[in-house]
């Protein structure tokens, strides 16, 4: 069981309130997206969950354990792949595990095979394309011993086609193990396509302005992107974001 709970989290930097009373619950095995414009305090929220600094008030718990201000309790995938250039792909995907426990090479090799990187396990990151790097980075966080995953706009640097490929790929991998995921993005379609639930983050100070459940059945197929319902949700979100920024 890995349930991530955030209660009444607030954080100010100097005079600016960046987060105000943010509360959210992510159930075990749920895929939740946090959608908001750039600079809306998403990364501050992530840094708080990651324990890089402590909130002014509020708490974060994982499976009932208070993890407020504690590092390394959550598996993390950053916006840039952040692979270590001197490590082979295999050694890179083992890194997060290595920080916590004895790494399991066989499992890592198995995962690399599954994601189509088996030929590249001895290659260095610079030999990979952007999409392959993100796959390796995702495998690294999957292999990380923590149960809940934090994905920080992982596909934002990729081109449109690769991004769509990667979204499909991410779902196919996710559906096997169903880890608890908090996915940050500013791409509305990406959020709808991937998530069970979308939380829309308002601007400065960031609060959750709206929660939307996505009812598409899983495993999801590409076609839903063009369905009436998908477009309807997209429109709804778009209006919320627009009205919020006009306040």
């Amino acid at each position: 069981m890995s349930k991530l709970e955030i209660n009444q989290l607030s954080k100010r930097f100097d005079d600016t309130a960046v987060l105000e009373n943010v509360s959210l619950v992510i159930k075990d095995g749920e895929f939740v997206s946090l959608l908001g414009p750039s600079g809306s305090g998403k990364s501050t929220l992530f840094h708080l969950i990651g324990g890089l600094f402590a909130p002014d008030s509020g708490s974060i718990t994982l499976d009932g354990e208070d993890i407020t201000g504690k590092r390394g309790k959550i598996s993390y995938m950053p916006q840039s792949p952040s692979l270590f250039p001197w490590r082979s792909v295999l050694d890179n995907v083992l890194l997060a595990q290595e920080l916590k426990e004895k790494p399991n090479r066989d499992k890592a090799i198995e995962m690399l095979n599954k994601v189509g990187l088996s030929e590249y396990k001895e290659s260095y990151p610079r030999e990979l394309s952007g999409g392959m790097k993100q796959r390796a980075a995702f495998v690294r966080s999957l292999l990380s011993p923590q149960k809940a995953m934090l994905l920080d706009e992982p596909f934002s640097a990729l081109d449109e086609f690769t991004r769509m490929e990667m979204q499909k790929w991410l779902l196919s991998i996710w559906e096997e193990a169903k880890p608890t995921v908090l996915f940050v993005t500013h791409d509305i379609e990406e959020a709808i396509f991937l998530s069970d639930r979308i939380l829309i983050l308002g601007d400065r100070p960031a609060t959750i302005v709206k929660e939307i459940s996505i009812q598409f059945s899983r495993p999801r197929v590409e076609d839903i992107r063009l369905s009436e319902e998908f477009l309807h949700i997209k429109r709804e979100i778009y209006q919320i974001l627009r009205s919020d920024s006009h306040d």
């Binding site: 890089l52 959550i74 993390y76 950053p78 840039s80 952040s82 270590f84 920080l99």
Partner: peptide, 21 residues
């Protein structure tokens, strides 16, 4: 910086930060 940030988020200790990064 990005790698330092990753290591912090991943919960690396000071020693791991030094030897691995």
């Amino acid at each position: 910086r990005e790698l330092v940030h990753y290591m912090k988020m991943a919960g690396a200790s000071k020693q791991q930060m030094f030897t691995k990064l």
